[in-house]
Design a protein around this nucleic acid. Sequence first.
RNA 1: GGCCUCGUGGCGGAGUGGUUACGCAGCGGACUGCAAAUCCGUGUACUCCGGUUCGAAUCCGGACGAGGCCUCCA
Length: 464
Amino acid sequence: MALKLYNTLTREKEDFSPIDPKNVRMYVCGPTVYDFAHIGNARPVIVFDLLFRLLRHTYGAQAVTYVRNVTDVDDKINARAARDFPGLALNDAIREVTSTTEAQFQADVTALGTLAPTVQPRATEHIAEMIALIEKLIASGHAYAAEGHVLFDVPSMPDYGRLSKRPLDDMIAGARVDVAPYKRGEMDFVLWKPSADDEPGWQSPWGRGRPGWHIECSAMSWKHLGEVFDIHGGGIDLLFPHHENEVAQSRCAFGHDVMANVWMHNGFLQVEGEKMSKSLGNFLTINQLLADWPGEVLRFTMMKTHYRQPIDWTVKSLEESWKTLDDWYWFVGDTPGTKPAKAVVEALADDLATPKMIAELHALRNAAQRNGGEGARDALAGSLRFLGFLADTPDAWAARRKTSVSVDVEQVEALIAARLSARKHKNWAESDRIRDELAGLGVVLKDAKDPASGEMKTTWEVKR
RNA sequence: GGCCUCGUGGCGGAGUGGUUACGCAGCGGACUGCAAAUCCGUGUACUCCGGUUCGAAUCCGGACGAGGCCUCCA
């Protein structure tokens, strides 16, 4: 089956063909661990988890290496550590910030139904590779040391700007970058910078210092995936300068035409039509959302929009998603299917066309309904599991609504029993009165005849 | 100023040079004591102005509008 992916490098949808089908290699920029991950951070996590699953399906589960890094050295981390743990020595404070933030991140993304990447390397464990890379760049004339800094010499790379389509001349004309005395060119960026005694640092040929922002991804992708690999992913905001500079570092260090063959970028996320920002007060962390919504609801909501489109994150959309998943959980029941439907895989294979994929899921559901076909129901169940859904049992899923608002379960059950008794005696006035009373508590009833016994049975759920 | 997206029915959201996307909501019907849930059915669209074409919502040009990046950011 042909897999097509949109490549930012060529701005075209291309047939994907791996360098080595026995080892398909993908790198995705992971979090800088200084604060709770927000819902925007969840987007690439979910998008590339889907791609990971698709690649495993296509090439075999053992034939895909997915690397998502953890950046645990950064000046934002240092600032956070100093602010939050003023009593601790800086290194202890930093460890406190990075370890708790990373643990939180892992818990969050697990709740979103994602598979663990093959490797999750940490920047601080790859300082030696970074130094080696910087030495290669200096040796090949693409970097220079100055006043304890090492800078990448941007003009030494003729096609710098190719990935983000920013000609160098234009950038210099509109540059809003720091003019530092040790820089030769305005666009030159830092590979290594000196650390003061109270800042985290490592010994290097240029003195005690720490890495610049972009070098860690070049070092970690090199270490775990090699000099050239198949797919590099991340958010569109990283395209420039982060990815452009990664490419510059890796290509100039190793002398290849490309760093990764395919570059994929997910679009931005807005919240209720506005940019998400702390100042607007609409900053949503994954953790906060998980308090109100099942992880699968967040996951499905993300899939309703194609990954390259901007997504507007709204409560209305979340509510719709929950309803859709309710129906599928109920409809699928304990159907055992484990294999995804061909149409679902094909939709995904077309540059992760998740809206098309969702339409195919609805089509399976409708087909199963019309023909009573177990084949379609099996395929729906298998597809949903393949996509990272149906982790709950149907009962556990249904119970999530009951626990999302606090109600007195015993009281509700007692009222339902009273109502059933009233109905048995055709006391409709009393029956309706009880139903209204429950509605006042936020409880909605569903009556059904048990097909086996013909007995009336009432189930209930909490309406938000 | 430079670069990049995008403008589709009440809402969300695909796709395509000539044929139903899909979902939610709405509406009609079945079921029900009445509802809810479920089932069956169903209307509404392609920002504007030019051009290419037998034919454009789909291609090209322009206008208007929305958003993003260029500085930490998924």
